[in-house]
C-alpha cells in the first residue's frame, strides 16, 4: 500500500516541494539549512522558475546544495559566489540567479566580491546563512562569531583584542546604492519561516525585475558547532544572536 492510496487529495495540507530531491541531506539534525533549502525550492516552484533558476553554492556546509534543490547549479570557489552569479546573470539575464552563502564564505573570504557585486547592483539574490561559526571545518570562529562565544579557534571565547569585533554585514550592504532589499530573517518558528519565505520570494522577484541586489540574511543555528541541542540552540539564538543581529528589513526599495 502506497501513501497515495490512503491520503485523498483534499486532505493534503503539506508536501515536500517537488524541487527538493530525494537525496538524504547531510545536514545535522536541527540545522537551519534544511528549512531554508525547502523555502528556496518552494519559492522557485511557486514562481514557475524551475527551468530558469541557477543557484550558486558556496564552500562550507551548503556546498552540496546542488544535490538537494533540483535546478541548475554552479559550485563556486570559496567566497566567489557573487562573482560567479554576476557573470551568470549578465550573460543570461533571463535566468533567476541566486547565491547561497555562509558567514565564512560571504563575510570573510568573500567580503570583497559580496560588496562589489552588490555595489554594482547586480540583479542577483544573495541568501546569507549566518550561524556565527564555521560548521563544515569543525566549529572554528566566523567573522560573525559573537564576543565571548567559544569556538575551536577561540576556545576561551572571542575577544576583541585578539579577534576583533563581530562583522555585521546587513547594514554594510544596506548602505550600498546597488542594493534594493536587505533583510534579516530567521527560521526558528513557524511564523519566522513564513516571513523568511516571503523575504526570499521578494528577493527573487527583485532580481527578475532588474531592481538590483537583494540580500536575505537568515540568522541561523548550528547546534553541533554550538554544542547545544536543537531546542537549546534556538533559545540561545533568540537570546544572544538576535541582540547583535536583530530581525527585520534594513532596506526595502
Amino acid at each position: 500500500m502506497k501513501p497515495e492510496d490512503i491520503i485523498s487529495k483534499g486532505e493534503c495540507v503539506y508536501k515536500k516541494p517537488s524541487l527538493l530531491t530525494d537525496a538524504n541531506m547531510h545536514y545535522c539534525p536541527g540545522c537551519s539549512h534544511g528549512v531554508v533549502h525547502k523555502l528556496i525550492a518552494e519559492v522557485i516552484e511557486e514562481m514557475g522558475m524551475e527551468d530558469k533558476a541557477v543557484g550558486v553554492s558556496p564552500v562550507g556546509c551548503a556546498v552540496f546544495a546542488y544535490n538537494y534543490i533540483d535546478v541548475d547549479w554552479v559550485q563556486a570557489a570559496h567566497g566567489r559566489a557573487p562573482s560567479v552569479a554576476t557573470a551568470l546573470k549578465r550573460l543570461n539575464p533571463e535566468n533567476l540567479v541566486f547565491t547561497y552563502q555562509g558567514d565564512g564564505d560571504l563575510a570573510a573570504i568573500g567580503t570583497c566580491e559580496t560588496i562589489h557585486a552588490a555595489n554594482r547592483g547586480e540583479n542577483i539574490a544573495i541568501i546569507f546563512i549566518n550561524n556565527a561559526i564555521y560548521g563544515m571545518t569543525g566549529g572554528q570562529m566566523a567573522p560573525t562569531t559573537l564576543l565571548g562565544m567559544k569556538t575551536a579557534t577561540t576556545p576561551y571565547g572571542r575577544r576583541v583584542d585578539l579577534n576583533g569585533h563581530p562583522l555585521v554585514m546587513a547594514p554594510l550592504m544596506a548602505q550600498l546604492d546597488g542594493t534594493c532589499y536587505v533583510t534579516r530573517q530567521s527560521v526558528h518558528t513557524p511564523g519566522a519561516v513564513r516571513k523568511a519565505k516571503a523575504a526570499i520570494r521578494k528577493a527573487f522577484e527583485n532580481s527578475m525585475a532588474g531592481k538590483g541586489t537583494s540580500m536575505v540574511e537568515i540568522v541561523s543555528t548550528c547546534n553541533s558547532g554550538w554544542k547545544l541541542t536543537p531546542a537549546q540552540a534556538n533559545e540561545w539564538m533568540v537570546e544572544h544572536m538576535f541582540k547583535k543581529y536583530p530581525l527585520g528589513d534594513l532596506k526595502n526599495e
Binding site: 566567489r80 562573482s83 570583497c112
Partner: peptide
C-alpha cells in the same frame, strides 16, 4: 573588482 573576481566570472561564464 579584482583578478580573483574576474577569473570566477570566467568560470561561471564558461559554465553556462
Amino acid at each position: 573588482e579584482s583578478e580573483v573576481a574576474a577569473i570566477n566570472m570566467v568560470y561561471a561564464g564558461a559554465g553556462c
